[in-house]
Amino acid sequence: MAQKVLLTGGSGFLATHVLKELLQHGHEVVTTVRSDDKGRFLLNMFEGQPLTYTIVKDISAEGAFDEAVKSDPPFDAVIHTASPYHFDVKDNKRDMLDPAVNGTTGILKAITKGAKSVKHVVITSSFAAIVNPSTPPKVYNEETWSDMTWEKALAATEGGIVYRASKAFAEKAAWDFVETHKPTFALTVLNPPLIYGPVIHQIASLAGLNTSNKRILNMMHGNPVSPGTPIFVDVRDLALAHVRSIEVPEAANQRFFFTAGIGTDKQMGDVIRKNFPDIAKNLRDDLSDTIPPYKFDNSKSIKILGVKYRSLEATIVDTVKSLQQLGA
Rank of each mutant, 00 (worst) to 15 (best):
N92E: 14
K93F: 15
R94Y: 11
D95T: 09
D95W: 13
M96D: 14
M96H: 07
L97H: 03
D98Y: 13
D98W: 10
D98P: 10
P99Q: 09
A100P: 04
V101H: 12
N102C: 14
G103R: 06
G103W: 13
G103I: 12
T104C: 12
T105R: 10
G106W: 14
I107A: 06
L108H: 09
L108T: 07
K109D: 12
K109E: 12
T112I: 00
T112G: 01
G114K: 06
G114Y: 15
A115P: 06
S117H: 08
K119L: 12
K119F: 11
K119V: 07
V121E: 14
V121G: 13
S125Y: 08
S125G: 08
S125A: 11
S126R: 05
S126M: 09
S126N: 09
F127P: 00
F127D: 01
A128H: 06
A128I: 11
A129W: 04
A129V: 08
A129F: 05
V131M: 05
T135P: 03
T135M: 15
P136N: 06
P136G: 05
P137E: 05
P137W: 09
P137K: 11
K138W: 08
K138Y: 10
K138D: 15
K138L: 13
V139K: 14
V139M: 14
Y140G: 04
Y140H: 10
N141D: 15
E142R: 10
E142C: 07
E143M: 15
T144Q: 14
W145M: 02
S146P: 00
S146Y: 10
S146M: 07
D147M: 01
D147L: 05
T149D: 15
W150H: 10
E151A: 14
E151K: 06
A153I: 10
L154M: 14
L154D: 11
A155P: 01
A156K: 00
T157I: 15
E158V: 13
G159N: 01
G160P: 03
G160N: 03
G160I: 06
I161E: 08
I161M: 06
I161L: 02
I161H: 02
I161S: 12
V162P: 01
Y163N: 02
A165L: 05
S166C: 07
S166K: 03
S166E: 11
A168I: 02
F169D: 03
A170Y: 08
A170I: 01
A170E: 08
A170T: 02
E171N: 03
E171H: 02
K172M: 08
K172Y: 09
A173D: 00
A173K: 02
A174S: 06
W175I: 08
V178W: 01
E179W: 01
H181A: 11
H181Y: 14
H181V: 15
K182E: 02
T184C: 04
F185K: 05
F185E: 07
F185H: 11
F185A: 12
A186V: 02
L187Y: 01
T188P: 10
V189C: 06
L190A: 11
N191G: 03
P192A: 06
P193W: 07
P193C: 05
L194H: 05
L194W: 01
I195T: 12
I195F: 05
I195K: 04
Y196A: 07
P198H: 00
I200T: 04
I200P: 07
